[in-house]
């Protein structure tokens, strides 16, 4: 399974990563090797196998919709890179 340069650029865009030329080159080679190794799964017949999403079959976990203590606004904002009047500030969107 060989990834192309263009595919790696495209994945990086999906993952919101800005990669240097050098990074794209090394990831192209390294990820191709790893994906090639994973081709071993193709030798299995999985036609009638159900995917397993959770190791111990759990049903939806419900709780009562009760008001409980949560963190105060000041603490929620304490790690914000840029905070203004009780909000997180981001660069212009539109």
């Amino acid at each position: 399974m060989d990834l192309s340069y263009a595919e790696v650029r495209y994945i990086a865009k999906l993952a919101r990563l800005e990669l240097s030329e050098k990074e794209v080159e090394s990831y192209t080679a390294q990820l191709s090797t790893v994906l090639e190794y994973m081709q071993q799964l193709d030798e299995l017949n999985l036609k009638d196998v159900e995917p397993l999403t959770h190791v111990f079959q759990m049903q939806n976990v419900f709780r009562e919709d009760k008001v409980a203590m949560s963190l105060p606004q000041k603490q929620i904002l304490q790690n914000g890179p840029e905070v203004q009047s009780g909000h997180f500030k981001v660069p212009q969107i539109l």
Partner: peptide
């Protein structure tokens, strides 16, 4: 780069995301 952790500034939101994560 919005609520916690590192932020590396960019000209727009997408650029900020990419520069921060990279």
């Amino acid at each position: 780069g919005v609520r916690y952790g590192l932020r590396t500034p960019g000209d727009n939101l997408n650029q900020m995301y990419e520069k921060t994560r990279s």
